[in-house]
Nucleic acid binder design. Structure first.
Length: 903
RNA sequence: GGGACCAUAGCUCAGCCGGUUUAGAGCGCUUGCUUCACACGCAAGAGGUCAGCAGUUCGAAUCUGCUUGGUCCCACCA
């Protein structure tokens, strides 16, 4: 077979992926083998692949392919997430393009559109993962809103409700006015922002009742003008004054003490509100006077509760001013802020405006929409018990985080956790299985929680006074559940562990092995999966969590559509091949650290593919012959066998510690440096008279075996090219695959073999350096002298072959009477005679520099050994080591000086 | 406001339970090579006072403290 000199991934990738699928190599069923399970972090069903997915899924594929090749029953379950708020937003946007408003549709009509959209775009991302080579068991592809998963969600909701962990409560929630839904605390992202601090005048409302107004307060300017006495309130949100129902001061604040017991008038609004006292107020902030708007601020809400204040909700769900505001009705809150500021100024009610930096909460899914605190009734999940059971396995090490620094983050969150707001005012999602009974519909409305309407009806009829109601009387709760309320069940629900507890699959595959995900969803997902796992399985959902970093561009910026700095993953695969992309990503990954992605890394991956390809071309072109093995070949084979063993052990250790980039780099260097640059060069047959010499059988077979092992080691990282070459390395049976071959177990290696070959490597490098310096062609044969001693003669043939040495003379003393150049490998002295080709002056300078270096080194060592305290206190082994350094350096110096003299 | 992490060659990082390292890797860079596997290559090189200061120690990139610069997480200060 004639192979082109460039590897073309497009000719192999699709072919082998189809082969793997046809033979169901990715499919797993429970059997007697040890299971290895990964569940995919389900991407948004309508999402498209980005670099973060590429990294995350490449890592998972490496882990799962490796486990498979270690003989485990490996399973990687794929699937997608319905992503309620994100998907609903997309559907709303798409409908808007067609001029359709969500509020004009019924729930059923809207859901029809949402499913259409899902079916149209859903799963694109999973198709893209196939291009990457992902060895997911596609037969098991799941969706968080498919039948079994939805049923699991509802069952869990009912169960938690029955356990008293779910309740309905009137609370101040984080409201997204664009999506018009409540959000959980962790869906709010706080951003520092330049804004204004407005100082508003609140005139005393009761001046005519002759208040006791102080004539002076030490160090403070009192507020009085022609209209009377006034207090000044600093606020960032003047548009909320229509909801003010009090002003608050700290009881211990001397400068505002005069306001006690008075009423003040809300500017523009004209309403008189009481001045209340609460230690919550920070005396130092602003003027020490706080406007209290119980409906629109969490702290104010709490103040309102303790001080029994009226609550005036001045906003509509979409963030516009409601009739309750009385002013600016229908205006957007942000527009209103500017308008009211102008109006206050105009009316002389604004003392001043300052620049101010504060933190504003934004919706995670609508990043340009500021969250509005809003008082409304929502469903909550109590967290105390769940947090407790989730904390233990992580703190006790039953679940290991990589890197473990995230244990702190995790603990901190769980120890200070708030109840989880699980209801969303959305249609796309799992509808809350609560049914309201006919009644007043007020705050204390009656409801039942049940899997379906029939069950709900049965439950409802047991309630006194409702014995005769019909299904039509029941009103199903309109809200959907938070997306994460379904994904937290993922490792359990994928094996139907909720609907069919104790089934064969859940018993076999649960707990899963490793989870690969980003630290940004440690609270959203990781922590909650541990809660659900412990609650419903009584066991951890996974053993290890590998946290990836964020993929950033070369300049350290997050990848984003706006910046246009995110490469198209499929484009990259087409340009460099999936294997190249995978290697490029893996080389720069390390657990928990952000990765700075640059296309040059993928180029490196592509180059490596090509290197493997060409190494294969070389070996494939060899002719095997029944001739005795040369000494050089024997030494090389022996060495590479040892080197392979040693590296295999290293790589195993790296993978076990989740140091995947180190493992990949070690494999890369083993193939490129050790195998190609040294081993293949050492055994490569000579090319003579227009034909290549044959290779002896022993070496030929060993080389093929090495190649086979190397391909197996590389396969988890570069699945396509390794399959292609493995299939061609020797005739394979139909249905065979490298995927299911074993990666060899490690055995002990002969360190001495490696050490002595290293001497040869260094000698060869030195000879090559001499050639380079003296401008001597690699083809010109050179002689080499070695001072007899600890030099291992076995490696001579290798030095001769790779160094272009015609003769190695092992002598008692180097014959430096002829001009030439010496070098040292460790303490072994070498000399290359060079008849009249060297520059004596340059040579001298070099030796002098070397001498200076060793003298400095020796000085340091001598200083240590001359220090009585060192010799007395340091362990004897350490002192011995220093002595050895001393004698070695002295010896080196002597030989250098001898050489110098002889020049 | 609380907490975590980071600072080592031009770049990205490893080493960090103190002593076989007057510091390693990959990429990049320099020089020389159309050597019949590969220029997506081969070979040989250059390059760092381990952020700064102080301390502990016979000995510190490695431990402690402080300083500077950077990143991230958590928190209801208008």
């Amino acid at each position: 077979m004639e192979l082109p000199d460039k590897y073309d991934p497009s000719l192999t990738e699709d072919k082998w992926y189809r082969y793997w699928i046809e033979h169901k190599f990715f499919h797993s069923e429970p059997d007697e083998r040890e299971p290895y399970t990964i569940v995919i972090p389900p991407p948004n069903v309508t999402g498209v692949l980005h670099m973060g997915h590429m990294m995350n899924n490449t890592l998972q594929d490496v882990l799962v392919r490796r486990a498979r090749m270690k003989g485990k029953n490996a399973l990687w379950v794929p699937g997608t997430d319905h992503a309620s708020i994100a998907t609903e937003a997309k559907v709303v946007g798409r409908l808007a393009e067609k001029g359709i408003r969500k509020q004009d549709l019924t729930r059923e009509e809207f859901l029809r559109h949402a499913w259409d959209w899902t079916n149209e775009h859903g799963g694109i991302i999973l198709k893209q993962l196939r291009r990457l080579g992902a060895s997911c068991d596609w037969d098991r592809t799941a969706f968080t809103m498919d039948g079994p998963r939805s049923e699991s969600v509802l069952k869990v909701f009912c169960d938690l409700y029955d356990k008293g962990l779910i309740y309905r409560g009137l609370r101040m929630v984080n409201w997204d006015p664009k999506a018009r839904t409540a959000l959980s605390n962790i869906e709010v992202i706080y951003r520092e922002e330049k804004s204004k601090l407005y100082y508003l005048k609140y005139y005393l409302a009761d001046t005519d009742t002759n208040p006791v107004v102080p004539t002076e307060v030490e160090g403070e300017v009192l507020h009085r003008d022609e209209k009377g006495w006034y207090a000044v309130v600093a606020t960032t949100r003047p548009e909320t004054i229509m909801g003010d129902t009090a002003m608050c001061i700290n009881p211990k604040d001397p400068k505002n003490g005069w306001l006690k017991g008075h009423k003040v008038t809300v500017p523009l609004v004209g309403r008189a509100v009481p001045v209340i006292e609460d230690r919550y107020v920070d005396v130092e902030f602003g003027t020490g006077c706080l406007k209290v708007t119980p409906a629109h601020d969490v702290n104010d809400y709490n103040l309102g509760k303790t001080h029994n204040l009226e609550t005036i909700d001045i906003f509509n769900p979409d963030g516009t001013l409601s009739p309750a505001a009385g002013l600016y009705v229908g205006m957007d809150r942000m527009v209103c802020r500017k308008q009211i500021a102008a109006d206050l100024q105009e009316a002389g009610l604004m003392e001043k405006v300052e620049d101010y930096v504060n933190k504003v909460g934004y919706s995670e899914r609508n990043p340009n929409t500021a969250v509005e605190p809003r008082l409304c009734k929502q469903w909550y999940l109590k967290m105390e018990h769940l947090a407790q059971i989730a904390l233990k396995p992580v703190l006790e090490g039953n679940i290991k985080f990589h890197p473990d620094k995230f244990v702190n983050t995790y603990r901190n969150w769980l120890e200070n956790i708030d109840d989880w707001c699980i209801s969303r005012q959305l249609w796309w999602g799992h509808r809350i299985p609560a049914y309201y009974l006919p009644g007043n519909g007020g705050e204390d409305e009656t409801f039942v929680v049940a899997l379906n309407k029939e069950e709900a009806l049965q439950k409802a009829r047991k309630i006194k006074g409702y014995e005769n109601i019909t299904a039509a009387d029941l009103r199903h709760d309109e809200d959907a559940l938070d997306t994460w309320f379904s994904s937290w069940l993922w490792p359990v629900s994928l094996f139907d562990g909720i609907n069919d507890p104790g089934n064969k699959e859940i018993r076999y595959y649960y707990p899963t092995s490793d989870l690969v995900t980003g630290p940004d969803i440690i609270f959203f997902w990781v922590a909650r999966m541990i809660m659900a796992g412990e609650e419903y399985m009584g066991d951890v959902p996974f053993r290890n969590v590998y946290f990836t970093g964020i993929v950033r561009d070369k300049l350290g910026r997050k990848m984003s559509k706006q910046l246009g700095n995110s490469p198209d993953p499929i484009g990259l695969i087409e340009k460099y091949g999936a294997d190249g992309v995978r290697l490029g990503i893996l080389l720069c990954t390390s657990a928990g650290n952000d990765i700075l992605f640059d296309e040059s890394q993928v180029e490196q991956g592509r180059n490596f593919s090509n290197k493997i390809w060409n190494a294969f071309r070389l070996v494939q072109g060899w002719k095997e012959a029944d001739v005795p093995q040369s000494k050089a070949n024997r030494v090389a084979v022996e060495w590479f066998r040892a080197k392979l063993e040693k590296t295999l052990a290293q790589i195993d250790a790296d993978y076990d510690k989740f140091r995947i980039n180190d493992a990949v780099m070690a494999t890369y260097k083993l193939f490129w440096d050790d195998f190609c640059a040294w081993y293949l060069e050492a055994v490569k047959p000579a090319y003579r008279d227009g034909a290549q010499d044959p290779v002896d059988s022993e070496t030929y077979q060993a080389t093929k075996e090495f190649f086979d092992v190397l391909l197996r080691m590389l396969h988890p990282v570069m699945p396509f090219i390794t399959e292609e070459l493995w299939q061609n390395l020797q005739p394979r049976k139909k249905g065979e695959t490298i995927m299911l071959q074993r990666i060899p177990e490690t055995t002990d290696c002969d360190g001495q073999v490696i050490d002595r070959f290293e001497i040869a490597q260094q000698a060869i490098a030195s000879v090559r350096a001499i050639r380079q310096q003296k401008n001597i062609s690699p083809k010109t044969p050179l002689k080499l002298q070695v001072a007899a001693g600890s030099f291992p003669e076995e490696v001579n043939p290798v030095i001769e072959k790779l160094g272009g040495i015609s003769e190695i003379d092992i002598c008692g003393e180097l014959d430096t009477s002829v001009p030439g150049q010496g070098f040292l490998v460790g303490t072994i002295r070498f000399f290359v005679p060079l008849q009249g080709m060297i520059d004596v002056k340059e040579q001298k300078e070099k030796i002098l520099a070397e001498i200076a270096r060793y003298e400095g080194f020796l000085k340091g060592v001598n200083a240590k050994l001359g220090n009585a305290r060192f010799v007395e206190n340091a362990p004897s082994a350490v002192v011995e080591l220093e002595r050895k350094k001393q004698s070695d350096a002295t010896e080196k110096l002597n030989s250098l000086r001898t050489e110098l003299e002889k020049l």
